[in-house]
Simulated assay, not measured.
Amino acid sequence: MQKLIYTTILASLVFIAGCTGSQYDLDDTAAVVKGEEITVGDVLFVYNADDDELPDAVDAYVMEYLVMQESKKMGIDVSEKVEMHGQFLGRYPSEDVDTDQANEVRQFAESRAELFDMEPETYLEEYTRKRSELSAYSNAFFEEHVDFEELDADEDIEEVDATIQQIINDLYEEYEDEIEFHIE
């Protein structure tokens, strides 16, 4: 499961795209989930999306946010995991390090930090913390609902994905009346 978290974070860091000239302001409301406002800035902080991709990013963020809310409601605490991940993954690479991966991380952090008027080091640290928190809550939530240890090593990953998707769909249906999308 730890490998899944690391892979998710690294994959997110590698995905580099511009986000300029948006028709949305960072403080525009993207959605409201169970009374809590999610802004365009909240979504764009963890998803690198242009205006065309923003509705899908909002949808994905809402689902992650809903899972996080449910995890907290269940009393799940992921603070230690988030802190541990931040120590290993949230560090801005030194300029002395000239590898493709370090250069990609710097490029990602610099482009995103500019959007949020932050220093790249600060953005990367906060991005890693938020991304780790969402991932840790999701992982803990699904571990409560799916017995991963009982899965056969040859278990069809599509079946597991379908089970997780059904859990998400059920959760969404349960709170559908309390979710309001402002960007679709």
Score class of each variant (00 low, 15 high):
Ser12Glu: 14
Ser71Arg: 03
Gln166Lys: 15
Met84Asn: 10
Lys73Ile: 03
Asn169Leu: 10
Ala31Gln: 12
Glu114Val: 00
Met84Lys: 12
Glu159Val: 13
Ile9Val: 15
Asn48Val: 15
Asn139Trp: 08
Gln101Cys: 02
Thr163Asn: 04
Thr99Pro: 02
Gly90Asp: 07
Ile16Arg: 13
Ala113Asp: 09
Lys81Phe: 04
Phe181Leu: 14
Ala113Phe: 10
Ala109Asp: 03
Val67Tyr: 09
Tyr92Asp: 01
Val160Gly: 12
Met1Asp: 11
Arg112Met: 09
Asp170Arg: 07
His182Leu: 07
Phe142Ile: 09
Thr99Lys: 08
Lys73Val: 04
Ala11Ser: 13
His182Gly: 03
Asp117Glu: 15
Glu174Met: 06
Phe181Lys: 11
Asp154Cys: 08
Glu70Val: 05
Asp98Ser: 07
Asp156Lys: 13
Ala57Val: 08
Glu144Cys: 04
Ala57Thr: 08
Phe181Gly: 09
Glu114Asp: 11
Gly18Trp: 07
Glu95Phe: 02
Leu134Trp: 07
Leu54Val: 02
Glu150Tyr: 06
Glu121Val: 07
Pro120Lys: 12
Glu95Cys: 00
Ala113Ser: 12
Arg112His: 02
Glu176Phe: 01
Phe45Leu: 04
Thr39Arg: 07
Ser111Met: 14
Ser135Pro: 00
Tyr175Asn: 15
Asp156Val: 11
Leu124Arg: 04
Gln69Asp: 09
Ser71Gly: 15
Met63Phe: 12
Phe142Asp: 04
Tyr6Pro: 00
Thr20Glu: 14
Asn169Trp: 07
Leu10Arg: 13
Glu53Met: 13
Lys73His: 11
Val40Met: 05
Phe15His: 12
Asp177Gln: 12
Met74Gly: 00
Thr128Arg: 03
Met118Arg: 11
Leu124Glu: 02
Glu143Gln: 14
Gly35Thr: 09
Asn169Cys: 00
Ile76Ala: 06
Gly18Asp: 14
Val46His: 01
Met118Ser: 11
Ser135Trp: 00
Ile167Ala: 04
Thr128Asn: 03
Tyr175Cys: 09
Glu133Ala: 11
Asp50Pro: 00
